[in-house]
């Protein structure tokens, strides 16, 4: 997903450092916010935790909104015909890295669920049960799938300085 503005059709120029900070914020705040919001109801303070969790999720979506119009996201999601050969080569490398990470995470999730089934009697390991849990996982996967290639691009070599 890439948001193209009329003013900046090539995406907003953003320093790699800022983009990396926003990606780290996105990937840290969203799961943390979900855990605080959907964690076990312990009575005292759980309402406050829920509000803090909601704020963290909102902050992560704000980071996502800023990144959606960036040049990194453009390079990751643009049509092939609108990129040059260097941009395509970088995108292919980033897509391969993103696919590897996503495949690894899916494999880890399956291993976790398998272990949970095997040891459910001895260890009360967490598993998604409510629609809210599945919703949080669904949107997390969507965000990761949409932004991970651009995140890999943000960690590429520093782009050259302008003229």
């Amino acid at each position: 997903m890439y948001v193209r503005s009329r003013r900046r059709p090539m995406g907003s120029a953003m320093s790699p450092l800022l983009a990396r900070s926003l990606f780290v914020a996105l990937y840290a705040l969203y799961p943390l916010g979900c855990i605080l919001q959907l964690g076990p109801d312990t009575g005292d303070g759980s309402a406050l935790m829920s509000v803090i969790g909601l704020l963290l999720v909102a902050a992560s979506f704000l980071a996502f909104a800023v990144l959606a119009g960036s040049s990194f996201q453009r390079q990751a999601q643009e049509q092939d015909a609108k990129l040059d050969e260097r941009e395509l080569a970088q995108r292919n490398r980033a897509a391969y890295g993103a696919f590897s990470v996503l495949a690894g995470l899916v494999a880890l999730g399956l291993i976790y669920m398998s272990l949970r089934l095997d040891f459910v009697d001895r260890f009360p390991l967490w598993a998604p049960t409510t629609p809210e849990h599945w919703n949080a996982l669904f949107w997390g996967a969507i965000i990761l799938g949409l932004t991970l290639p651009a995140a890999f691009l943000a960690w590429e070599k520093e782009p050259p300085l302008e003229d």
């Binding site: 090539m10 990129l83 040059d84 050969e85 260097r86 941009e87 782009p159 050259p160 300085l161 302008e162 003229d163």
Partner: peptide
Amino acid sequence: VNPQTIGY
């Protein structure tokens, strides 16, 4: 090409 590509 993109001007950045010339820089690269």
